[in-house]
Nucleic acid binder design. Structure first.
Lengths: 209, 209
DNA sequence: ACAGGACGGTATCAAAAGATACAAAAAACA
DNA sequence: TGTTTTTTGTATCTTTTGATACCGTCCTGT
């Protein structure tokens, strides 16, 4: 591994030199492209990924439907993989790369070892879990209590905030797969929003008004 | 605190004597009765509970609808409270006692301190998180992809397995609140199941055939 | 320029879920 | 015992969501 310093600039949580050493020694830097599959539902998780650049979409699938759980971004790891690896369980989700992405992977069996050795590793794992946990509960609430139109609007508004733009680049199909429904439903709802002057629809884009 | 030994027999994960000492010193043993509210949505979480006996139902509420997230049982703690306390956020769920329950509570500000001091405390927190996380993802999948009748049957079968009985003691109303729907919907589905000879309905009980 | 694919609009139909209302039976309680 | 509450059954109606199908437009690669 050639570039240790830039690597850890993305991982400020890791304090102990020994932990950095262990990561460099047992880890491997991999580059993925859009569409590459990191983990499939039903697979055992032998390696844990830490994303350095880019993002991984973690989602669930049933027949031809999908729903996003979360995105793993720079500095983050995939809690679903974590949970699966701890239990030595199979993955319950898919992980697919969304853009050119660099990942540091390391063997899952170091998990418990590092957990006992390095406080900052612990801190990192717990931070990841509580972040995802919070997100998940939030989404869960929406799915249980809200109608899809509400969830669509909330999705758009959140996305708009994050990207600091009133225009969101997303197709109806992709939006459907984010929220766990079908394209026709999304198109119908968006058209209704447009009639109500809440959005303006363009090809591949949605403008919030 | 008078009975330290029986207390820690419920918490085999806690290894360090100093951790046990700290728990005894800063913790407080409380007894609750059915219906007592441990935490409300919107409240800040200042104390974390570890259940010693009994159980706490953690659920979300919107208007007159509810959905269960999980039950905190002997030896366990409430991850939702944990996540809230870490972030210094308000609780996003309710926690209500379901039966006579004994709880060890301690100030939330010891969380990070103990996390740095005691490996077994870390182990405990992470174990709790990944357990709940797994459960939550599972339930989430059901809510997104499955129709309620499927979820009802799965609930009944799981409950039947856990309680090692073909007869499940639950009212339609309670079942509705477990799954996040309404009583009428549950009654309708159960009646259909009965017509299909899948269950037998009794007052307050459902027998799986 | 052309073919094929992605994208979006829309109509029709069916199923699922929810809202509301009323009634009967059983249980709890006083 | 009489009253109240809980539990369940059921009918009706509406809304939401999903499934399917068809078409036109735009984009992309060759």
């Amino acid at each position: 591994m050639e570039t240790p310093q830039p690597l850890f600039s993305k991982l400020p949580l890791f304090k102990e030199p020994e932990l950095k050493e262990a990561l460099l020694k047992h880890g491997q830097l991999l580059a993925f492209n859009k569409g590459d599959v990191i983990v499939k539902t039903g697979q055992y998780v032998r390696f844990l990924p830490i994303v350095l650049k880019g993002s991984i979409r973690v989602f669930q699938q049933k027949e031809d439907r999908e729903v996003s759980l979360y995105y793993v971004r720079s500095g983050e790891t995939c809690t679903m993989s974590l949970a699966a690896a701890y239990f030595n369980n199979k993955s319950v989700s898919h992980g697919v790369v969304m853009e050119p992405t660099e990942v540091l992977i390391f063997p899952a069996n170091f998990l418990t070892e590092w957990q006992l050795q390095f406080p900052s590793w612990n801190q990192y794992i717990i931070t990841m879990f509580r972040k995802r946990y919070d997100e998940l509960i939030n989404t869960f609430e929406g799915v249980v209590f809200d109608h899809i139109n509400v969830r669509v609007m909330e999705y758009l508004k959140r996305k708009s905030l994050i990207e600091e733009s009133r225009i969101i680049d997303i197709s109806h199909q992709t939006l459907a797969k984010e929220l766990g429904t079908t394209r026709v439903v999304i198109s119908r709802i968006l058209k209704q929003f447009e009639r109500e002057k809440k959005v303006k629809l363009l090809r591949g884009q949605i403008e919030i008004k």
